[in-house]
Each structure stands twice: as C-alpha cells, then as structure tokens.
Amino acid sequence: MAMASRFPDHKFGRLTLRIARDDADLAQVAQLRRVRFRDNRGADMDQFDPLCAHLLVVEGDDPAALACARLRLLDGPELDDCYSAQFYDLSPLARAGLRGLELGRVCIASDRRQDPDILRALLAGIALHSDAEKVDLLLGCASFKGDDPARHAAALGWLKARHTGPSGLCPLKRAPLAFDLPMPGDLADQKAAMQSIPPLLRLYLGLGGWVSDHAVRDPNLDTLHVFTAVEVARIPTARKKLLMGMTQPR
C-alpha cells in the first residue's frame, strides 16, 4: 500500500485511476479477480499481493472498481523472487541489472469488458507508474484461456515467428509444464492467428514488446501463458506521450 501515497489520482475522461488504499479497496480487487480468474468459485489472492500496489479504475463518484491491475517494482535480484519467476528463470534479466515493473492480474468487470476506455485507462496508469519510477522493463505473464497447447498452436506459432525476445534477456525454462513455442504455420494461418492473441498481449506487442521462446501450462487457472516484456526505452515516443497525455492529475 506504500505506493498509494506516492501517486495521485488521475482523471482519464470520465474515469479515474487510483491506487487501492484500504481493505475495502482490496475486497473489490479480490471480487474482480474471483470472477475473472476463478469463475466466481474461489479466492485468487496470493502471497505476492501484499508486496504489490493495486491500480483501480473507477467512474465518476462511484467508488466501485471497474478494473484492476497488480503492480510490483523489482530491482535486479528481486526479479528472482516475483510471481513470474515461479514459472520462468529470469536470471538473464537479473544479470542485466534492469529495474522492472511486474504487471499481473489485469481484469475488467464482466459487464464492462466491451468498453475500450477502461483498458486504455489501465495502460495509461501503467505508463505513468513506469515513468515516475524510472522503470527499464515492464514484465509479466500474458495468458491464453484454456491450457491445451493445441488450442493455441497457431497464435503461439505467430509469436515464435515475429515476437520472441533477444537471447541475452529472454528467460530460461523453469516450470515442469513449460514447452517450446511451436513452429508457425503458413502465412494465411498466421494472419488469422494474430487475431486470436489476447487483446492485452496485442497491446504490449504494439508497444514493442516481446515474448519468451516457450510457454507454460497453468492447470490451476486453466490457462497457458508466455512471459512478456516491454523495454520502456523501445516504446515509440509518440505512443508513450499519447498514453500519458490522456490523463491529468485529479
């Protein structure tokens, strides 16, 4: 909760971005995540939550959270002790001495998922945080719904062909359920596959992001995911200014 005092609320049109401040805010985070990640059948909070700030999107004077995202600042060796490090060996990033902002558990209320401004607001909040904390790298696990690799083979092949990261930074395998990204199909299949990539991952790729050369099955959440990183210095300047410029202090 320490980050709450360092970041003021920001307006994003009719929406407001703010950091969770108290137990009531965290209860809203828990409910959003329960619906999104557990099909409303179990708690989703874990041991990493107390180490993180929780970014909320609210509308007008209504305190109800419409969306949330979990943020954690990571310096060097801390990269070996974060959520993503459970699944990926991040030692290449740790050796590089990069300052990271881990993003996770991004979710939007089920009745507002068609509102594009909410996701844009979350991205703007992430951009503001990364700029204020002088972050080198945004990182996290980008998830596909359903943990059967065959279901996502075309999309994963597209990622392998076009978006795998540099060898000096790309994480190594750690999880028992890790598997190499499959070889891409023909061009027509790849174009269709691009459309099946989750919207949040497409946005990260649009910022110049890259993914690991392998994915990991997560039967616990019935997902599979790829490690995803965005090197802040490589984000197109115009895109970064646009994101940050769409907000103003409240």
Rank of each mutant, 00 (worst) to 15 (best):
V106C: 11
D117Q: 15
S212W: 05
A192H: 13
G104V: 11
M183E: 07
A192E: 13
A109Q: 13
G208L: 06
Y83K: 09
L138F: 01
S110D: 08
L128F: 10
R105S: 05
G100N: 10
S212N: 06
D189H: 07
R99P: 06
A178R: 06
K173T: 14
G185M: 01
G157D: 01
A154M: 04
E133K: 12
L159T: 01
G104N: 06
S196T: 10
A109M: 13
M194G: 03
L101N: 03
I108H: 05
R95P: 05
G168W: 06
L123P: 09
S167T: 15
V135Q: 04
G97K: 03
G100C: 13
D80A: 10
L159R: 03
W158N: 01
P149S: 07
S196W: 00
R217S: 14
A193N: 09
P149K: 07
P198H: 03
D89W: 09
R202G: 09
R174H: 06
D89C: 04
D180S: 07
A215P: 02
R162D: 00
R112Y: 08
F87Y: 14
D189I: 13
L172Y: 11
I197P: 00
A188W: 04
Q195K: 10
L181S: 00
A192R: 12
A132H: 05
S212Y: 07
C141E: 10
G185P: 01
T164S: 08
P198A: 03
L201V: 03
G104P: 00
L156E: 01
H214K: 11
P171I: 12
R99E: 07
P176L: 07
L200H: 03
G100P: 05
L201I: 00
H214W: 13
S167V: 13
W210R: 15
P166F: 02
R99T: 08
A188G: 03
V211N: 02
C82F: 09
S84R: 03
R120A: 12
F87T: 01
P116L: 14
M194C: 12
G209S: 05
L119A: 15
V216P: 09
G104Y: 13
S130W: 01
P182L: 08
A124G: 11
A121P: 04
S91I: 05
A85G: 10
L119R: 09
L159G: 02
P171M: 03
L181V: 02
L181N: 02
L159Y: 07
I118F: 10
L205N: 04
G168I: 05
R174I: 10
K134S: 11
L101M: 09
A109L: 11
S212H: 04
P182M: 05
